[in-house]
């Protein structure tokens, strides 16, 4: 079974966000990590591979600066990696690049994270499925494969739903699908020699562009209420904040 796991390179969640001239993130001092949901997807792919056999390839659309995190994915256990050398500024562009690789290499299962924590778009998985004409399941909390059939549990607004579908397909991972693995020493050693192929981007349209950034308005200082006057809180929520 051939897995392709899409990984994006995002600022660590504890990063203090600073914009440079409101034109984009100021990367100074920012630690970049593999998008947490992508690590979940990667781990599930490895678990299934270990049970059923196959290969796990990771792919990233990004500049050379993402390679440390691609190597980390190899250290966690992926067999090989592809980097498409382009700045990922539009989800359609990213999906078009990944789709091109899928068409050439015929993967059985394509996994992404449910969203990347930088632009919170939740776009790439659905776009990939559509471009490739494959069935897709988004925000999946469980994934099992038997033969050519997959059983997937996904979040729905009133709970969860179990669905079945045939390979090949695209799914986006949500917490629950697996517990992310931490690379061990052997993994880190072997990662250095695993293949990382760099490809140039294919021509594709870009449908969107982020043109300006700003920080959300600062929160007003928290209004403290004495623990001896709890009912005052209820009055304020009713008459001042008007939320109850």
């Amino acid at each position: 079974m051939k897995f392709l796991v899409c990984i994006s390179n995002v600022p660590d969640t504890t990063t203090k966000i600073v914009f440079a001239d409101n034109k984009g993130l100021n990367p100074a001092g920012v630690q970049f990590i593999i998008n947490p949901y992508d690590e979940i997807a990667l781990t599930r792919a490895l678990e299934i591979k270990e049970a059923l056999g196959g290969t796990v390839t990771v792919i990233n659309v990004g500049g050379a600066g993402t390679e440390p995190n691609i190597r980390k994915a190899l250290a966690i256990g992926a067999d090989d990696a592809i980097r498409i050398n382009a700045e990922p500024t539009d989800a359609f562009f990213v999906a078009a690049q990944i789709a091109e690789v899928v068409k050439k290499n015929q993967y059985d299962v394509i996994l992404t994270g449910r969203e990347s924590i930088d632009y919170n778009g939740a776009q790439v998985a659905g776009m990939l499925a559509e471009i490739l004409g494959m069935p897709g399941v988004t925000v999946a909390t469980k994934l099992d494969i038997a033969g050519t059939q997959a059983t997937v549990e996904r979040e729905i607004d009133g709970g969860k739903e179990v669905v079945s579908l045939s390979l090949p397909f695209v799914a986006s991972a949500q917490k629950g699908m697996a517990e992310p693995r931490i690379p061990n020493m052997r993994g880190i050693m072997t990662a250095r020699t695993k293949p990382l192929t760099v490809l140039e981007a294919v021509a594709s349209e870009m449908h969107t562009a982020s043109v300006a950034y700003e920080l959300p308005p600062a929160k007003q200082a928290c209004k403290m209420i004495s623990p001896d006057h709890v009912s005052e809180l209820v009055d304020l929520l009713h008459s001042e904040a008007k939320v109850i």
Partner: peptide, 23 residues
């Protein structure tokens, strides 16, 4: 931008050759 919306908005954007702003 609900779970259902997250599943279909990217697909409809591609189908209509449109650009998507999610969230």
């Amino acid at each position: 931008y609900t779970y259902t919306g997250k599943a279909i908005a990217p697909r409809i954007a591609v189908r209509l050759k449109g650009g998507l702003v999610s969230g």
